[in-house]
Nucleic acid binder design. Sequence first.
DNA 1: TTCGCTCATAAGACCAGCTTATGAGGCGAT
DNA 2: ATCGCCTCATAAGCTGGTCTTATGAGCGAA
Lengths: 300, 300
Amino acid sequence: MPLTHRVPDLGALELLLAVARHGSLGRAARELGITQPAASSRVRSMERQLGVALVDRSPRGSRLTEAGSLVTDWARRIVEAAEAFDAGAQALRGRRDSRLRVAASMTIAEYLLPGWLITLRAQRPDTAVSLIAGNSSAVADRLLAGEADLGFVEGLAVPDGLDGTVIGHDRLFVVAAPGHAWARRRRAPVTPEELARTPLVLRERGSGTRQVLDSALSRYGGLSAPLMELASTTAVKAAAVSGAGPAVLSELAVTEELSSRRLTRVPVEGVALERDLRAVWPHAQRPVGPARDLLGLTRG
Amino acid sequence: MPLTHRVPDLGALELLLAVARHGSLGRAARELGITQPAASSRVRSMERQLGVALVDRSPRGSRLTEAGSLVTDWARRIVEAAEAFDAGAQALRGRRDSRLRVAASMTIAEYLLPGWLITLRAQRPDTAVSLIAGNSSAVADRLLAGEADLGFVEGLAVPDGLDGTVIGHDRLFVVAAPGHAWARRRRAPVTPEELARTPLVLRERGSGTRQVLDSALSRYGGLSAPLMELASTTAVKAAAVSGAGPAVLSELAVTEELSSRRLTRVPVEGVALERDLRAVWPHAQRPVGPARDLLGLTRG
DNA sequence: TTCGCTCATAAGACCAGCTTATGAGGCGAT
DNA sequence: ATCGCCTCATAAGCTGGTCTTATGAGCGAA
């Protein structure tokens, strides 16, 4: 169970990626600011821990073995997730002295913002960003109080006093475990009526996804009593994966499960389960400077 | 640059997730097999490191702060990637005594297999799996030599001597940075002729994706000289993200970049850039036992 | 009051990873 | 040939972080 003892720590994984890039333990060590013996011993203990040779050493450098490059690919995913964590955490700590103060809804802060911040850091390394996360009205409050320069919200309308622009759409997907009957409905989409009368695994009443679902299905008799009502997106996902029943979740929350086939998207016809993602700012104060840079990234 | 000093280690992140689940430092500690003071001090040093309060402590338990639950969500991504790493690495180490010996092509081993192994472990905890990765003919060799029970390959045909079943499709996506002109072609798909005459960022000659692209475009005058020819999928992705030009990559390799909008999918009409993903086994030896369990997971 | 839960603090043990110093192997230029 | 430069490996010693055990303090219910 304790993952820590079977997975090398982040430093070791970074080192492995550096070895892959440079083809040399010594140069990898230099990149990470450690000595060559440290790198050598660290790679060796990683190999001992995993029970697999990762690197072919020669007097002219080091290349990854077959197993090594597979391990490196898996390691890259961990390191990328760690980079997103770092970008987010750094913004969360950043305070008043930041050049760009962002207020964002939870969904956007969780799934999209870290990626934007990584890109922004690559393009403008000197832009210090601070982040406050909250619901739509909290975001509006921060902007109107002058405590944030740029906001991001999801939902159907722009909050009062703000201007905004749509930067994308958060589609809600109906998903089911691959074994579920609905997973085989590729050619025969589920109808809105069918969706409305089927008990689903859902977030608790009041959540954003639930609101969208409620209003989209109101003309079809409304949502039926949920199969399960859970407190977090994670819990809903876990229930759906384990086959409890169909669930409705943000596209952003399920991309990984879909591409690894732990969940299947169920096609639904004739109903738009979608909400806008918007960048917002105080009325008549178009973003300039760093805020404009970030805004540019979010639309491409 | 050294990520390690700004991101808590995996043990700390696991602890944070456990605290979120249990609402108590002590119970989280027990789950991870450490003492309560160890957990207390570890969470505290994580808060110091990040510069953010993560949990609200009270005599009746601990709950995450707002920032804490955002951090926990980001942490979950890291831990999930680590679980995939662990599942894969464990299979890579496993040897002859394994109950299920899998041979898989690189793409499948990299992107899909870890997820399957996690699911398999949840359903049949006692199935020890071993993994050998290689190209299609290496997979065939292992199966025919009786050194593997089940194989996975991508490509256009089933290798000689094997039976198989299609378990899915790997679509090749044309992708470009959001700023690229092709990123705005949503309503006016790129034509095959246009794709054929445009210099692209590609893997080197001989790679699987390149073969598919070559054969799909052969009737349209064939692929033009590449804009860049790079040695790894990662390098191609990086070039595309930085705006070097359009690239063609497996759907599996770009889902994350697409959902975070670092890349945009370019619609292409009239040409099927797709290859089958197949499970394969020696002629007339339908998978049974653990191999059959795994096969079931891959199709749903 | 006492029990049971919560978390915090303190003191000491242990170990992983670092550094410096050194050696050995291969290749190419002088 | 041999010197110089690159590669990686090994050994000895320091250090710091994380663990443990032992203890205390706060809050609520029986």
